[in-house]
């Protein structure tokens, strides 16, 4: 259950970055990347089914727990192999590793999802496509775009 992104909605305001940093004691786990002149996309842990970071982590600090990729700070050696293994650049090592924990124990819904002013983030896999399908259906019913 990662956080899903509707890129058409992201307005690049970086509130997810600041909010994540705020609730995680200063080290945030999401970065907004700017693409071209006006598009932007927040990048954060995908909680991959086959997570390279967990395979690289020899101490067992990073492991799969159901559909989440979780992190046990007590076991982390700070080696940085997870950072090298992650194909998306969303695991960092500052002495010890840190990555998106879906705000477990901090909030019921990940903080970035609640704070996003544009509703670009959600934990609902299907939301963006439901919105797109509804838009398309409406346009088709109207007989095309005005």
């Amino acid at each position: 259950m990662p956080v899903y992104i509707d890129i058409s909605r992201c307005i690049g305001c970086r509130s997810c970055e600041v909010a994540c940093q705020r609730v995680h004691g200063g080290s945030g786990h999401v970065n907004v990347h700017f693409v071209g002149d006006s598009a932007s996309v927040p990048i954060l842990c995908h909680h991959c089914e086959e997570a390279s970071c967990t395979m690289a982590c020899f101490s067992g600090a990073l492991y799969k727990d159901g559909d989440k990729t979780v992190f046990d700070v007590e076991k982390c050696t700070g080696c940085g192999l997870c950072r090298l293994a992650c194909p998306f650049g969303v695991v960092w090592t500052d002495k010890i590793a840190h990555k998106c924990d879906l705000c477990e124990g901090l909030a019921e819904v990940p903080t970035c999802v609640t704070t996003c002013p544009a509703n670009a983030l959600s934990t609902d896999f299907d939301l963006a496509s439901r919105r797109a399908r509804a838009r398309a259906a409406r346009v088709a019913a109207q007989g095309g775009r005005r």
Binding site: S15, A19, P117
Partner: peptide
Amino acid sequence: VSEGALCSKGNA
């Protein structure tokens, strides 16, 4: 208005 949302400035 905000339904729980806050921008970067509000968060800071």
